[in-house]
Design a protein around this nucleic acid. Structure first.
Lengths: 207, 181
DNA sequence: GCTTTAAAAAGTAAGTT
DNA sequence: AACTTACTTTATAAAGC
């Protein structure tokens, strides 16, 4: 009985140690991404649920932490791309994506695909664009979604193009290069998206 | 009601010769064959006609990929095996060939709003950040389909042409039922 | 899980011209 | 800005790490 007791202590000690490690990893990743405490806490909830459901087996703590954070960002509408998560964690983009799918499936977390709208506030503030430009960009994105112009397109590219167009329309023009760098897409992508948006929505010649 | 035309794009087939092979010994019979055992345990032999690639293992088993018809796949396997037999007369003339996977493409005719499909259709995965297609897993014919905004579709995982065809048809019917097409 | 093969879909990326 | 090449996703077998 004594051995059994000691074993339990040893195991719970390891469990606590792992949780402490996971939370420190979460803090590190979160601060590098400049995420608010609320998102970090949402991620810790996902992580604890993963542990309770024994979903860590065969997976690295770093990977589960990264995937939990990716899911939390999406659920809190302050999405980070898989590339951004992979950059700050020491987990590959592939592993983060794989673990994310596993967690959402096993924990029955149902998240709709990331909306380009959720990227607007962050990109806009990093570009020092006004609230008016943000509203205009969101308006453009919503019209685009209604017309099915976002199916299959990367959310960041759509958000970037909408912000670019809005910045020009409201006289706060930013270069495609600046918007592209902040959004993490290429100028070619912004060009392809804005051509499509300006042509199939209203605004034409304005640019 | 089922007028979906599918096009077979790729077929994967496997075969077991029932006799182990000495790869270094039979390799010379296959012009242009590649063999880097540290990298991959099998010989990689690419045929121009039918345009296919064969993976040949020391166990005597092989895999053929790239054919666009079951007949071409079998033909390619026999061409490779016949060439090896020139350097190993023990290789049997009769052996089984099994179709492992058939990849087909089709066009549903109408564009799809993937966001809507993702919300209403069951067993789907849609992550446009990573890939433009929506993944739809069917249980009946056990196949997986990739649905695109253009209305074009890819069906994979089928072991027979019929299953690939049925998979696309069932998908089209389900989309119609949900008023997504 | 990875390695290697083939092929389509459509978006995105990178390197040339 | 056009081209070309290439990677993302799906399935699948093979032998071995």
């Amino acid at each position: 009985r004594l051995r059994k007791w000691q074993r339990k202590i040893r195991i719970s000690g390891a469990t606590e140690r792992n949780l402490a490690f996971a939370l420190s990893e979460l803090d590190r990743d979160s601060s590098r991404l400049g995420l608010p405490r609320s998102v970090r806490e949402a991620a810790s909830v996902v992580y604890r649920n993963a542990v309770e459901n024994k979903l860590i087996r065969g997976r690295s703590i770093e990977g589960v932490v990264a995937a939990s954070l990716y899911a939390a960002c999406r659920r809190c509408n302050v999405p980070r791309t898989l590339d951004e998560i992979a950059e700050v964690s020491r987990v590959s983009k592939k592993e983060v994506g794989r673990t994310y799918r596993f967690l959402t499936r096993e924990l029955n977390i149902k998240l709709p695909p990331t909306s380009p709208v959720d990227y607007v506030p962050r990109f806009a503030s990093e570009l020092n664009l006004s609230g008016e430009v943000q509203s205009k960009a969101i308006e453009i994105i919503e019209k685009a979604m209604e017309k099915g112009l976002t199916s299959g397109r990367g959310p960041t590219g759509v958000a970037a193009a909408a912000l670019y167009i809005a910045s020009v329309l409201l006289g706060e023009r930013k270069t495609q290069r600046d918007v592209a760098d902040i959004a993490g897409v290429t100028e070619v992508t912004i060009r392809n998206r804005y051509k499509e948006l300006t042509e199939q929505l209203d605004m034409g010649v304005t640019l | 009601m089922t007028t979906v035309e599918i096009k077979v794009e790729n077929i994967v087939a496997s075969a077991a010769l029932g006799k182990s092979l000495d790869l270094p010994q039979v390799a010379p019979a296959l012009e242009g064959v590649e063999y880097n055992s540290e990298q991959f345990p099998g010989l990689v032999y690419k045929l121009k006609e039918p345009k296919t690639a064969a993976l040949i293992f020391g166990s005597g088993k092989l895999v053929c990929t790239g054919a666009k018809s079951i007949e071409d796949s079998k033909k390619a396997i026999h061409i490779a095996v016949d060439k090896m037999r020139a350097l190993d007369t023990e290789i049997p003339h009769e052996f089984e060939i099994k179709i492992q996977n058939i990849v087909a493409s089709a066009n549903l005719g109408k564009t799809l709003n993937l966001e809507s499909v993702a919300l209403d259709l069951e067993n789907t995965e849609y992550e446009p950040e990573q890939f433009p297609g929506l993944v739809y897993r069917l249980d009946d014919p056990k196949v997986v389909l990739l649905l695109f905004g253009s209305g074009k579709v890819v069906c994979t995982g089928a072991k027979s042409f019929e299953d690939a065809q049925l998979g696309v048809e069932k998908t089209k019917e389900r989309l119609a039922e949900l008023d997504l097409i």
